[in-house]
């Protein structure tokens, strides 16, 4: 619609006076959005009417204001919580929300820290285990190399006493080229309670101690000192953990 004839139609005056039908209102509001000159015209009309109203103002009785504010307060009271209260509560809750958030973050961090430190411990443990296994594996590799060597002799130590013959036996791998002697611990039985096994080499007919047998070691074998002049090996049962200078009771013997 043409703006000029729209303004001239008097519809804006009717609009400002609250005299429009809903259809007319919609039409005016649409024109207001589309045409700044329609807006300006309406603004002028409204200002004129507003000034007339101010010119004819009648001061209400003074007590009315307080009564109105009281009613507004009452209606915003606890029975019908208004946006004022909701806003107030929301605002007063802000610092608490911040405290909670901060506390939560702190707690989370502490938790996270302890979790991480646990994980670190676990990892360190795993690394240590790994290292141990690596060393074990290296030792095993050496033994495997020893066993594969054609110069390695497997010496079976068999029972020295008549009555236990064939019951107790141990194996020793001996290689004079590599200068290595290794005892296979798995082949040994457990000693009687309070008794210990001592390993001996027989050199020129005399027993030379090569140390105590380590039954609770990490590996299933024990490396022994290499004595090139050894003629035989023996295991004795002793009553002291550190062993004795001379074998007390020889349990088994094997010749090289």
């Amino acid at each position: 619609m043409d703006v000029k004839s729209f303004i001239a139609s008097g519809i804006l005056e009717a609009y400002a006076l609250g005299q429009c039908t809903p259809e007319e209102r919609a039409q005016v509001e649409q024109m207001l959005q589309a045409h700044p000159e329609v807006r300006a015209e309406l603004e002028a009309i409204e200002q004129a009417l507003e000034q007339i109203a101010h010119a004819h103002a009648v001061p209400p009785p003074p007590h009315l204001k307080e009564a109105l504010l009281e009613r507004a307060r009452a209606e915003a009271g606890p029975s019908t919580p208004s946006a004022v209260r909701r806003l107030g509560r929301w605002q007063s809750a802000l610092p608490w929300a911040a405290v909670l958030l901060l506390g939560g973050a702190l707690l989370w961090q502490v938790n996270e820290r302890s979790r991480l430190s646990e994980q670190l411990q676990l990892l360190e443990q795993q690394v240590a285990d790994c290292e141990k296994r690596n060393q074990q594996s290296a030792r095993l590799q050496e033994v495997v190399a020893l066993l594969r060597d054609p110069n390695t002799q497997a010496i079976v130590l068999s029972n020295a006493s008549e009555e236990a013959a064939g019951k107790v036996a141990a194996t020793v791998w001996h290689n004079s080229v590599r200068a290595e002697t290794v005892l296979d611990i798995n082949s040994l039985p457990a000693p009687p309670p309070g008794r210990y096994f001592q390993f001996w080499a027989i050199v020129q007919g005399k027993p030379v101690s090569m140390g105590m047998v380590q039954l609770n070691g990490e590996d299933a074998f024990q490396r022994l000192p290499f004595l090139p002049e050894a003629q035989a090996f023996a295991i004795s049962v002793e009553d002291k953990p550190q062993g004795n200078a001379i074998p007390t009771q020889v349990l088994m013997v094997g010749k090289i």
């Binding site: 109203a53 101010h54 103002a57 001061p59 504010l69 507004a72 004022v84």
Partner: peptide, 25 residues
């Protein structure tokens, strides 16, 4: 719009006379 209690008081001060003039007619 923010529901400031003082805002109603100010609104009343600004327009109560002019509105009351219309109402009493």
């Amino acid at each position: 719009r923010r529901r400031e209690p003082k805002a109603l008081s100010d609104l009343y001060d600004a327009y109560s006379g002019a509105l009351y003039g219309v109402i009493v007619r």
